[in-house]
Simulated assay, not measured.
Amino acid sequence: MVCDDDALAIDETMPQLVRLELFGNRLTNIGLNAILDNCHHLEHLDLRCCSNIEFVGDLKKRCSERIKDLKLPDDSDPDSPVDDTFSDLDS
């Protein structure tokens, strides 16, 4: 299920926003574009696990040019509780 309600509320009420973490949010390209259109001071944007974002056309370029610290939907989560280190069960 997709939902841009949060993104549209952000773009309408927080134009001075500098940092935004939308980790796991259901926003789409429409919501992301609304945020980019109206939050001109945005420097840090975390979109990890936002699986409804599709960086097609100009969107990825627009984000990478405007946002100093950009985390994309497929970027890893260093705070994840999953331990992905190898353990040798035979020793």
Rank of each mutant, 00 (worst) to 15 (best):
K60I: 04
D6C: 11
K68Q: 13
N25P: 01
F55I: 05
C39D: 04
T13M: 11
L72F: 06
K60T: 00
T85E: 11
L17D: 09
L22K: 02
C49P: 00
E65F: 07
E12I: 00
H44W: 08
E12F: 00
M14Y: 15
D77F: 14
L47C: 02
D11Y: 10
N38P: 01
D58H: 10
D79K: 12
V2M: 11
L27I: 15
M14L: 15
F23S: 07
F23R: 13
T13H: 15
A7Y: 08
D90W: 06
A7K: 07
D69Q: 12
S87E: 14
D4V: 03
D5N: 11
D11F: 09
F86R: 10
V18C: 04
F86I: 13
D37C: 11
D4M: 05
N38M: 04
I35R: 02
N33R: 14
I53R: 06
V2W: 03
S91E: 14
H41F: 14
D90F: 10
C63D: 01
S64L: 09
C39Q: 08
K60P: 00
L70K: 05
R66I: 00
A7D: 06
F55Y: 15
L45Q: 06
E12G: 02
S87D: 11
P73T: 01
L32Y: 08
H40K: 15
E43N: 07
R26N: 07
D75W: 06
L27S: 07
V2Q: 15
D88C: 11
K71S: 13
C63N: 01
M14G: 01
C39T: 03
F23Y: 15
N52D: 12
T28G: 02
R62C: 04
P81H: 03
T28Y: 05
S51K: 12
S91K: 13
K68H: 12
K71P: 00
L72H: 00
C3N: 15
C3G: 14
T13I: 02
R19S: 14
L32I: 06
N29G: 07
E21R: 14
L47M: 01
L59A: 08
M14K: 12
L59K: 05
V18T: 12
A9P: 00
P78K: 03
V18F: 00
N52G: 05
V18S: 02
S51Y: 13
H44T: 15
C49Y: 14
A34G: 02
H41Y: 13
V2R: 13
C3V: 01
C3H: 09
F86D: 10
H40N: 14
N52P: 03
S64M: 12
H41I: 00
S80Q: 04
L17T: 12
N33P: 00
R19V: 06
G57A: 08
D69V: 13
K61G: 05
Q16Y: 12
L32D: 08
R66P: 00
N33V: 06
N25C: 15
D90G: 01
T28V: 01
R66M: 07
D6G: 05
I10E: 04
E54V: 12
K61F: 04
L42Q: 06
D79A: 13
D83C: 11
L72Q: 04
S91A: 13
D58W: 03
K61S: 13
D4G: 06
L32Q: 08
H40V: 04
T28D: 01
A34W: 02
